[in-house]
């Protein structure tokens, strides 16, 4: 699709003490595309995402956003660039309603007073833009929502700010069949609206259902970044479990020895 990626990570290293978790990882995300980030437990997916989101600072590597090299040292930096992460545990406040959650920490105000009307309008517009029809009222408390609806609110919260990159950490892990379909549809719609979406998932069915590209991490290294249409289910499984699949993947690598 588009030639220049919105987000490009090159040669990212990250260690925790003596343990090197990420080795020279490259990752690109393009606008209008869903990039699936796959990998076994402990492959470094979460660490990579936290480096992108600014929760961790990378030890080495380049971070290019919209063609410009940038420096991310805090989650605020990432948010200012338009990078939003939807974590697995969603981080919503049960005792607040949908609008209040969507604007949490970034409330609109006129003077000292909260501008509820503007926030409500913007929230309604965002949900409409994502064709969300499942919530009854946007003034409902989040505690009264189902898992899929909560996921929807968390995603809508991430796109409210004209973000460019949305990273979703296992958005369907805790959902039933129907709700998973709903959320995947929403993920696809985000990309169709022009956002770069990075989808972390263990579920290859989900990955093949919505993604345009697949990036497979294997023991802290990027095994392969391929187009979803170019690979089979079995190849991706091989990439996840052994880091290589025929021509694809890490060629002279066996485990951690370089």
């Amino acid at each position: 699709m588009s030639s220049q990626p919105v987000l490009e990570i090159r040669g990212l290293d990250k260690s925790f003490g003596p343990v090197q978790v990420l080795h020279h990882v490259d990752l690109t995300a393009h606008a209008g595309e869903v990039t699936a980030l796959v990998g076994d437990n402990g492959a470094g997916k979460s660490t990579l995402v936290k480096c992108i989101g600014g929760t961790y600072t990378a030890d080495a590597g380049e971070y290019v956003f919209d063609g410009r090299p940038v420096h991310i040292t805090s989650p605020r930096d990432a948010a200012d660039l338009g990078i939003e992460i939807v974590y697995q545990d969603l981080a919503l406040c049960d005792n607040l309603d949908i609008v209040q959650n969507m604007f949490l920490g970034r409330e609109k105000r006129s003077g000292l007073v909260l501008d509820e009307a503007t926030m409500e309008e913007m929230a309604a517009k965002t949900l409409d833009g994502l064709s969300v029809r499942t919530v009854k009222s946007i003034r409902q408390l989040v505690s009264s929502l189902s898992g899929g609806q909560r996921q929807t609110v968390a995603i809508a919260k991430a796109v409210l700010w004209n973000s460019k990159v949305v990273i979703l950490d296992e958005p369907t892990a805790a959902l039933g069949v129907a709700q998973t379909a709903q959320v995947l549809e929403l993920v696809r719609r985000l990309a169709d609206n022009g956002l770069a979406v990075i989808l972390i998932s263990h579920n290859l069915n989900d990955v093949f259902a919505v993604s345009d590209r697949i990036s497979a991490l294997y023991l802290g290294r990027m095994a392969a970044q391929v187009k979803t249409s170019d690979v089979t289910h079995a190849q991706v499984v091989e990439l996840i479990t052994s880091g290589r699949s025929g021509e694809l993947g890490l060629q002279n690598v066996n485990g951690v020895t370089a």
Binding site: P75, A91, Q100, V113, L114
Partner: peptide
């Protein structure tokens, strides 16, 4: 009820981790 500060008190009481991630 009407200021961001008050909203943040409710947020911290409801889910401190969510509030922290929201930059509060």
């Amino acid at each position: 009820r009407r200021t961001a500060f008050g909203r943040h008190i409710y947020a911290v009481g409801g889910n401190a981790e969510a509030a922290r991630r929201a930059g509060i």
